[in-house]
Write a protein that binds this DNA or RNA. Structure first.
Lengths: 230, 230
DNA sequence: GAAAAAATGTTGTCATTACAACAAAGCGGA
DNA sequence: TCCGCTTTGTTGTAATGACAACATTTTTTC
């Protein structure tokens, strides 16, 4: 198991490699591999273990009875998923968890840590605090998604999302983790309308793109539109 | 201070009244009162203390540079706010926190509890675990809001929101904590279009309403529309 | 209780998107 | 390289909501 990588994730921040090994035992850690487009958790399920993504990519997807997908977020390696349900074992999942590429996941039984007494393992403390931080960052992420889908026009939603990615990645050349259909599902717009708006924006010189790679010429920060050189 | 009430909140669940008193001291608890429409926290601020609402009501509001408001959620007595920022003291707030009626708030310095060593106060443990649960419920709430604003039509958004309130309140007669304008800001639609859709739905017999009181005749659960007797 | 202010409802027009149907480009396997 | 399949882009049409302007109702204030 790649302890070096695990120690660098938000969940195990500030924990030494040695300690991590011990903790993983407490957590009943189990690594599993999944192929692309595999549904790890299904909507409606109640689950016990959360996941730490080691390799690959995951979408959190809510699909309604008519088959309309709504992507709540994307999980990158080093991030966790289903932590909300691991903390609330009674809540049924309101979304599916689906791999977007071949993936490796480390499953962790945090319930054990939360329910048993403090002293059983001296590092539980640290883990719980890290979990708090992780959860609150997830909150901010969800708020961001809300910001992206609050504008009424497709163009504004795109600029909101792409600008945010650009700021997050610290570049104006960005790769996004979504296909066109997935981006449409994330922004809650029609795919073909999205395509059409994108090419209109490209014609107007606001951005250029090829597949999942985008280059922004204008960015939206705090509601202001800033023009960028290059 | 109303310890009896405080002990019944999610944050202090499972803590005796005696213990609560001790903990509040550790947390540097301070009660404050605010008038209606008062902005307790401003967007951009970095804050140290989270709030526990004792009395009144609060909206979490994000306003853009053009004055368009986006209501992220409503806080009822017994619920907490700004907990995300209290757990991440570096993150600036992305929203305002505004009272919707005369309110009383208990401010808690959770940073103290999170940063200092475990043993300083034996009940910190319990508090942190409760905080985990509270945070994950907040996550579910945000996901709910996303569900409400994902549909493209005003009618579907309304049914999604109202049905959810009905299920939460366990009745088909419900009171909502929003004015029309606030409801529009929560659902990200135009107020007048909302009004017009509401009255159309009333004409069609889907629901009836007066001010903030609604009676549903049809409810949306898991994407299915169920007709209700009255 | 009258006047003013705020909240809610109504209506028509215009902009924008969803939707459908199709075209073109990209990709994988034989 | 050719074929089939998937993804992305294009276009036209119908539906829907935003917006503005105004009417009506409700609440507040004096």
């Amino acid at each position: 198991m790649d302890y070096k990588f695990i120690t660098k994730t938000g969940l195990f921040k500030g924990v030494t490699e040695e300690e991590t090994k011990a903790m993983l035992k407490c957590l009943g850690a189990e690594e599993k591999k999944f192929p692309k487009d595999y549904t790890i958790y299904h909507m409606g399920q109640t689950i016990r273990r959360m996941g730490l993504l080691l390799k690959g990519g995951i979408n959190i997807v809510r699909t309604d009875v008519w088959g309309n997908a709504n992507i709540l977020g994307h999980i990158l390696p080093g991030e966790v998923f289903a932590e909300t349900y691991a903390c609330n074992p009674n809540e049924p999942m309101i979304s599916d968890v689906i791999t977007t590429s071949e993936s490796a996941v480390l499953f962790l039984d945090v319930g054990k840590v939360l329910q048993t007494c403090v002293s059983s393992c001296s590092h539980h403390e640290r883990l719980i605090r890290n979990l708090l931080t992780v959860l609150s960052l997830k909150n901010l992420n969800l708020s961001q998604k809300i910001n992206h889908i609050t504008p009424k026009t497709i163009r504004e939603r795109l600029l909101s999302y792409l600008s945010w990615e650009a700021v997050k990645q610290g570049k104006q050349h960005i790769d996004i983790p979504f296909s066109r259909q997935q981006l449409a599902d994330y922004l809650s717009v029609d795919r073909s309308a999205l395509s059409s708006e994108l090419s209109k924006m490209q014609r107007e010189g606001l951005l250029s793109y090829k597949k999942n790679h985008f280059i922004l010429r204008e960015i939206k920060v705090d509601g202001e539109y800033l023009k960028l050189k290059e």
